[in-house]
């Protein structure tokens, strides 16, 4: 027995996920250009772990393996996590993080479509709390260093913790601009002085701002493809810009500029790829605006006053908790109803 409608659009979960992956590619290319090929190693590691974990859990849960493996959602989670982790982290960090994302954050809650929290952000938060030191060591932008590791050398370092002779770890790693900003502000340095640091680019971290711009480009592609709606990115970026702008305007010496917030940290990745995760996010148009604005406020608060350099992961998770409440209270007016 077949039911109407007897035909459907030629779309599928796989196609949706594939387009998300495609939209990440410009960002990844910029990443490699700015920080070297370490990220590629992380991506490969995360993808392989995610697919294996997904297949194993599906098998255990007695679900059809192939259709769910091909849906691509595990890959999206893996890529988002890999892009959020420092690319010079040891291999086990990526593997443990991916396992947390797929096994705990996704499948323990019921698998695709059931997870209340963004799996990549759950894993990121778990790693950040467990391994704070490793999680805050980021590579120095290639522009600023003479040390350029080849792909093989990256591989060697990530797996065996072996650096080519004559290269010290300190020479190739540094704090992130957000991190640096926070420690310097604690030492009562002014914003102007802080921005003199070599790894600050025009608006935010050197290199990082280029990567962020490429994420923006990918996000615009998703908007064009109607994979995401405008509500979340616009509400998130606007709120973040307004709140940081107001404080920066009041006290420019103490609060960083809006563009620093927009192009620094994981802002762009969050705006178009993380907060827009449909499963764990709000669904009503008004709800999406509230949800995204909430993430923006929390992100700014954590960045400015919190203990961790970037607050995106925690902000997203906190707002995930509120999603059912937001959705239930922002139901749009149904056609023909007066409400």
């Amino acid at each position: 027995m077949k039911f109407s409608p007897f035909f459907t659009t030629n779309t599928s979960v796989s196609i949706v996920m594939l387009k998300v992956l495609l939209a990440l590619v410009p960002g990844i290319i910029a990443y490699v250009w700015a920080f070297g090929s370490g990220i590629v190693v992380s991506l490969i590691l995360a993808s392989a772990t995610a697919l294996l974990a997904e297949a194993a859990v599906l098998q255990l849960r007695n679900r059809p393996v192939m259709p769910f493996l091909l849906d691509g959602s595990a890959l999206v989670t893996a890529w988002l996590l890999a892009l959020a982790l420092p690319p010079i982290a040891p291999w086990w960090l990526v593997v443990v993080g991916t396992l947390i994302a797929i096994v705990i954050a996704k499948h323990l809650y019921g698998g695709l479509g059931q997870n209340p929290f963004n799996p990549a952000m759950v894993a990121y938060a778990a790693l950040l709390i467990s391994f704070p030191v490793i999680m805050t060591q980021w590579p120095v932008p290639l522009e600023l260093t003479t040390i350029k590791l080849s792909f093989i050398e990256q591989w060697q370092y990530i797996f065996n913790h072996v650096l080519p002779s004559g290269v010290g770890f300190d020479a190739m790693s540094s704090a992130t601009p957000l991190d640096y900003l926070k420690t310097q502000l604690k030492m009562h340095h002014t914003m102007e002085d802080i921005h003199q640091a070599k790894f600050f680019g025009m608006f935010a971290g050197k290199g990082a701002e280029i990567v962020a711009s490429m994420y923006l480009l990918g996000g615009l592609y998703l908007l064009h493809q109607r994979i995401i709606s405008w509500h979340i990115p616009v509400a998130f970026l606007t709120t973040l810009a307004v709140i940081s702008g107001v404080f920066h305007w009041v006290n420019p010496a103490h609060f960083s500029a809006p563009l620093f917030h927009l192009l620094g940290g994981a802002t762009m990745l969050c705006a178009f790829f993380i907060a827009t995760d449909p499963v764990s996010g709000a669904t009503t148009p008004k709800g999406k605006l509230i949800f995204a604005a909430g993430i923006a406020v929390l992100t700014w608060l954590i960045r400015t006053y919190g203990g961790y350099p970037d607050g995106v992961a925690f902000a997203v998770l906190l707002m995930n908790i509120l999603v059912p409440l937001i959705d239930a209270n922002t139901q749009p007016r149904v056609f023909g109803h007066s409400k």
Binding site: V16, F68, G113
Partner: peptide, 11 residues
């Protein structure tokens, strides 16, 4: 497949 709450339907 499971619903991924993409709200293509709501649109």
């Amino acid at each position: 497949m499971p619903c991924i709450r993409c709200v293509a339907c709501a649109d």
